[in-house]
């Protein structure tokens, strides 16, 4: 093989694409083609097997969604047999409701805050544990373990740790001679704690997604780049990040939806308080629906939350797909 300069050894993205497209099918057709009628019958049977799943989806997702949209135009109290149509009154009320505005901001903070921290820490952990270290299997398992715990249990554990009288953190504080801290009395601190707990619980998912992404990047790319003199940060920005685009899309969308729907941890740790100040839209919907007995208004909030999640997901998908195509 003649000597080639490093630039020529480095695989170009267009080369990769061409390889994939022109790759011949590895399996030759071994069965004779079936008659068209039989294929149709088998296709029909296979389609029939979708029906139970579709039915369950229709009953537990589509019907409640349509029903919820319908309820949002009524003044239903959530349990009485009678309800009246109120048109767009519930939606107009949303625009003038300061509590809803505050809670909407909280929801965005929970969604974006959790997503950003989970990506940063998830990717960092994935890169650290992608290397051949001793005990990396155990480390991966330990980081992933909180994902398996119910958010209610996770929230309760941290509620006890942050407790005023018997909480472990205040035990440490008093050990150093300082006054106890009412950690969950301040709404800003409480929101930060909730974001941290949610991040800690689900960072394992991001780590696993990024680990899978990292392992799918051929090592030749790194080897070739090293011949070009690229190291550390350059490799990270020019190889790792671009080729992790699909993993980013999956992880960000999953974490964002989870963050926007955050419920259990808030309920357990602060109950939405002090006041309404740590509620997310999800927890506020429960309060307004059941406690305030305004099922119609709560349904309008639910519709807004649904639209918000759809919007965030579409925008993110579109941005990430564009970047993937550019890459």
């Amino acid at each position: 093989m003649p000597f080639l300069p490093a630039q020529q050894l480095r695989p170009r993205r267009t080369d990769v694409a061409e390889t994939v497209i022109t790759k011949p099918s590895p399996l030759p057709a071994t069965k004779p083609p079936q008659p068209a009628g039989r294929r149709r019958r088998r296709g029909g049977l296979v389609n029939l097997l979708y029906v139970p799943a579709l039915l369950l989806f229709a009953v537990f997702t589509v019907y409640p969604l349509i029903s919820g949209v319908g309820l949002s135009f009524t003044n239903w109290d959530g349990y009485s047999p009678e309800k009246a149509m109120v048109g767009l009154a519930n939606y107009t009320r949303l625009f003038s409701d300061d509590t809803f505005r505050m809670v909407l901001i909280n929801t965005v903070v929970y969604g974006l805050g959790s997503t950003i921290f989970q990506q940063v820490f998830g990717l960092g952990l994935a890169m650290a544990l992608d290397r051949p270290l001793r005990g990396r299997g155990a480390a991966r398992a330990i980081i992933y373990l909180p994902v398996l715990v119910s958010p209610v249990i996770m929230g309760t554990m941290y509620y006890l740790l942050f407790g005023y009288n018997n909480g472990a953190f205040n035990d440490v504080v008093t050990f150093f001679g300082m006054d106890r801290v009412a950690w969950l009395s301040n709404s800003t601190a409480s929101i930060a704690i909730i974001v941290a707990v949610n991040t800690l619980q689900f960072v394992g998912i991001s780590m696993i997604i990024y680990l899978a992404g990292l392992q799918s990047i051929p090592s030749e790319y790194y080897e070739a780049s090293m011949l070009d003199g690229a190291r550390g940060w350059k490799q990270f920005t020019n190889i790792t990040l671009p080729l992790l685009q699909p993993a980013f899309a999956t992880s960000i969308v999953l974490n964002l939806i989870g963050g926007l729907k955050l419920f259990d941890v808030i309920k357990v740790m602060t109950g939405g308080g002090p006041g309404y100040s740590t509620n997310s839209v999800s927890t506020l919907i429960g309060v307004v629906y059941f406690d305030n007995q305004s099922a119609g208004y709560a349904s309008a909030m639910g519709v807004v939350l649904f639209l918000m999640i759809v919007l965030f997901t579409l925008v993110l998908n579109s941005l990430l797909n564009r970047r993937r195509l550019e890459a």
Binding site: S185, S187, P274, G275, Y276, N292
Partner: peptide
């Protein structure tokens, strides 16, 4: 009116905690 209890609780709570 029916359904006000939660408002009574959260508004008193928000005064105690200086949220409002």
């Amino acid at each position: 009116p029916n359904g006000m209890w939660n408002t009574v609780v959260t508004t008193t709570d928000s005064v105690i905690t200086k949220q409002s």
